[in-house]
Amino acid sequence: MEEKTILADPIPQEKESKEAVVDIKGLKKTFGSKKVLKSITLTLAKGENLVVLGKSGTGKSVLIKCMMRLIQPDEGEIQVLGKNILQLKEKELNDMRKSIGFLFQSAALYDSMTVGENLEFPLRGEKKVSVEEKSKRVVEALQNVGLQDSINKMPSELSGGMRKRIGLARTMMLKPKIMLYDEPTTGLDPITSKEISKLILDVQKKYNTSSIIITHDMECARITANRIIILKEGEVAIEGTYEELKKSEDEWIRSFFE
């Protein structure tokens, strides 16, 4: 008998009344002569999972890297938790970054550290967190992703799915309010992809995070999305729920769902 997949609510509860935790206006970024982001405007409500779809090279990853200021945009405004992230000084920016978790496509685990050390690494500057509390958080984070036995393993000993889970656990160490996922299921088999998608949903429910999920995996989008936007040539082409977009009469939009 097929297991029933728990999906995200198509429309987040009280969405209209919820404050926007991310508000992007007129974001532009050009690399050389290529305009990657032409003018992106979007908002992310508190507790919402927003999936960003689009063909390769449409600027999805650039968009979330601009939000972390890993890439400096040319124009536009990015308000995160009420602060314009592009105007923050180094210390304020670092503090802000601690409120945002970022799961990289490759998980970006530190090769020279064990899983435990990887998880503890984001807490190294937190003087208010005691050593016992740090160890407790590591164990808790590993339990959340179901990998409590991997604490002493090196990243090279882990499979792709395990790396992604550990990467997710590491981003949760600072208990961020916003999560950014850069293609979280890329390179994984369908079963592991589904597990990662469910984990994303669990994180949203357990920690009440708001998330932007960049993906090409429609199953991941189906499971995790409260709302979906599709980028086309550096602009938001359309937005809606999974079901709305699936029923779209536009052939190009439907092609994502086939």
Partner: peptide, 16 residues
């Protein structure tokens, strides 16, 4: 290798 595998970016986004 750390740069290519985004480990340096990962440190940056952790506020380190």
């Amino acid at each position: 290798s750390m740069k290519v595998t985004e480990q340096i970016d990962a440190m940056e986004v952790s506020g380190i």
